[in-house]
Design a binder for these strands. Structure first.
Length: 674
DNA sequence: AGATGCATAAACAGAC
DNA sequence: TGTCTGTTTATGCATC
């Protein structure tokens, strides 16, 4: 409290990660921001070449993600295994198995975090642990079954090698797939469970230390991948048969990716050791094998430094590294917990990869379909084109335009996974993300916040809204549409991790905004002063936009509107896949998820500006015009309402429920003492 | 280039 | 006296 102003003021320069002193310049690096303005004056149309480029970029993004995954898995597997166990089996263990063995332990850091930030009661902790244990039990059972399946599959492979029963083999494969599905389901359940825990404040995720509480079940085993793998296995097997090789394990190895060769021998030596079946050929294991035989290429050791996450201890040689590994990273609670975190990282990447794949698939499918459609010009995206068209169609009567996106007449390709779901793009721009694009273009702030609630709560990402918009939102969310200053503070800290630090700065900004903007009206209350929102004034405040020229606006609708989001989505996707460590709980959400939102923003913004164009700056603006459109659009706290048809594509991420009362009511005062 | 919007910083005053 | 609240001014950047 007392330190708040002092410390914070001082720390401003550095504490605001982005924010160093330069005020706005911090804002500049914002991914969202960059995504927008840069893509804002884009080419007019998206031709076939662009589409190809898009696809290529998506593919590259996937590739990057895959590589990261492999690296992470490599670390993960070797890391867990290294402290002990010299048996050869571990080498053949799939990450799944490893993951399942890992107890659900909360690291001291996490515990500290929980205690500090979340004020967990012992009961809550107890519940948390129990739930996790229950999940572990389930996993173990699944693991047993899984092993059996793999053994069976291995047998089948051997039989097939001898030229037998391909059908049975396929049955097993089918079973495998079914099982993997089961694992995935389980995984999803876990995710939900843990997300709910987060929501309850039982877990938090730090941006720098991703702790998405997920068990990496079926690592990398997306059903499609499984199928692919199976195909590879079988086809390669056939090939090998013809060439006279006879170790299925070897076959598996050779079919598997193209990394270190040495691991082959290990596999060859133990064809039956494949209790994990062909799945065990997955890259991570190969890597672990590899480093066993070539210890100096240990994934946890490099450049004389222990690469155990968060360690970085200097080890002059490999021997000392091994000593260090065995002493500091033995199989204890801490190590396993750290490993779990690492697995979460991997898990997150996998989810991301899977989703990106889906998106890519949907994009390609959609574009293919689109290209066969004679009518709509070179518009790559259904959402855009349809919305744009309908906008244009109704342009004649702008007054009638609702601010909710016009219902698309064309089918919406379920490419996007949610209207303005935040992705990692913004995560690595942890700082002030300028510009309040949503603000400017009138995206329903309520729905954005609702959609990305978990994200905002957990990641120190500046919400892309102005203070004024946020304040307004805070006030409008309150039951009585009025809040005291302190309540506004609390809302900020409760809803946004970003505002849990540098309080002096943003609180000052809040006060400043309250005073500055006419739209905020101070009302003397019984218990003091409260702040309310004057919607009319608020809407007046808006228009900093494309003004005037209707043709410009129209042009924007038809071209800019879909170019920008596309670029943004691509950027997001790329960034997402290249900055893994900033993953958090609520992400896993598709970059193109921003697409619908961005499109809507553009259109709404444009249309609104069209509507209010003449009255923007004029006091003679019709109240209806001023209030109704935006009000109607942003008012509903329920994003479903606000989103209209676009909400069809919301994701599991969607967590509109606002958080329980456990919040940071008192934190603004204390938390800042850093 | 100028106007405008916004973020940030800071000074100041009044209330508690 | 110190803190909180509220107002105001100044500055810098981005956008139009």
């Amino acid at each position: 409290m007392m330190q708040e102003s002092g410390t914070e003021t001082k720390s401003n320069g550095s504490a605001i990660q982005n924010g160093s002193s330069g005020g706005n310049h911090l804002l500049e690096c914002g991914g969202l921001r960059e995504g927008r303005p840069n893509g804002e004056t884009p080419a007019v149309d998206v031709g076939a070449a662009d589409l190809a480029h898009v696809q290529q970029q998506q593919l590259q993004a996937l590739q990057v993600a895959r590589q990261l995954l492999l690296q992470q898995q490599q670390q993960q597997v070797s890391g867990l295994k290294s402290p002990k166990r010299n048996d050869k089996q571990p080498a053949l263990q799939v990450p799944v198995s490893v993951a399942m063995m890992t107890p659900q332990v909360i690291t001291p850091q996490q515990m500290q975090q929980i205690l500090q930030q979340q004020v967990l009661s012992p009961q809550q902790l107890q519940v948390l642990l129990q739930q996790q244990q229950a999940l572990m039990l389930q996993q173990q059972q699944l693991q047993e079954f899984y092993k059996k399946q793999q053994e069976q599959l291995q047998l089948q492979l051997l039989q097939q090698h001898a030229g037998k029963q391909p059908k049975e083999q396929q049955q097993v494969a089918t079973q495998q797939l079914a099982f993997q599905q089961q694992l995935l389901q389980m995984q999803q359940l876990q995710q939900q469970h843990l997300l709910s825990l987060q929501r309850q404040g039982l877990l938090t995720i730090q941006p720098g230390q991703p702790a998405l509480p997920l068990q990496p079940l079926a690592q990398g085993m997306i059903p499609t991948e499984l199928q692919q793998l199976w195909k590879e296995v079988t086809s390669a097997h056939t090939t090998e048969e013809t060439t006279g090789n006879n170790h299925s394990s070897l076959d598996l190895t050779t079919t598997c990716v193209s990394s270190s060769a040495p691991s082959k021998t290990s596999l060859i030596m133990n064809p039956h050791a494949s209790t994990n079946g062909q799945l065990s050929v997955h890259t991570p294991k190969r890597e672990s094998l590899s480093h066993e035989e070539h210890p100096h290429s240990h994934p946890l050791y490099g450049h004389g430094v222990c690469k155990w996450p968060g360690c970085e201890a200097v080890c002059e040689d490999f021997q000392s590294f091994l000593k260090h590994l065995n002493s500091e990273h033995a199989l204890d609670d801490r190590s396993t917990a750290q490993c779990r975190v690492q697995m979460q990282v991997v898990q997150q990447l996998e989810l991301q990869l899977a989703k990106d794949k889906e998106r890519l698939q949907a994009m390609m499918t959609h574009l293919h379909v689109k290209s066969t459609e004679p009518k709509t010009a070179p518009q790559p995206l259904n959402l855009v084109s349809s919305v744009t068209l309908s906008k244009s169609a109704s342009e004649a009567s702008p007054q009638s335009l609702p601010h909710t996106p016009t219902t698309p007449t064309a089918p919406i390709t379920p490419v996007t996974q949610g209207p303005s779901v935040i992705t990692t793009t913004s995560m690595h721009t942890v700082g002030p993300i300028r510009r309040r694009y949503s603000d400017k273009y009138n995206v329903p702030i309520s729905s954005d916040i609702a959609q990305n609630q978990e994200f905002y709560k957990n990641a120190e990402v500046r919400p892309p809204f102005t203070y004024a918009s946020l304040i307004r939102q805070a006030i409008l969310e309150s039951p009585e549409k009025q809040l005291t200053l302190n309540e506004i503070y609390n809302w900020f800290t409760r809803m946004f991790a970003y505002f849990r630090r540098n309080a002096a700065t943003w609180k000052n900004a809040v006060r400043h905004n309250l005073s500055l903007h006419k739209c905020f009206v101070r009302v003397e209350n019984v218990k003091g002063a409260v702040w309310t929102v004057d919607e009319v004034e608020f809407q007046k405040r808006r228009p900093q936009k494309i003004s005037g020229n209707p043709s410009l606006i129209k042009n924007m609708q038809t071209s800019h509107a879909y170019c920008t989001p596309l670029n943004a989505a691509l950027q997001a996707s790329m960034a997402e896949n290249s900055i893994p460590l900033y993953t958090t709980a609520s992400m896993g959400n598709p970059t193109l998820g921003n697409l619908a939102s961005a499109i809507r923003e553009e259109l709404n913004g444009a249309m609104e500006h069209t509507n209010s164009n003449e009255s923007d700056s004029s006091p003679g603006r019709s109240p209806m015009q001023a209030v109704h459109p935006v009000h109607v659009k942003e008012e509903p706290l329920d994003p479903e309402e606000a989103e209209g048809p676009l909400s069809l594509v919301t994701t599991a991420n969607h967590s509109p429920d606002f958080d329980h009362d456990r919040d940071y009511e008192d934190e603004p005062v204390h938390e800042d003492v850093e």
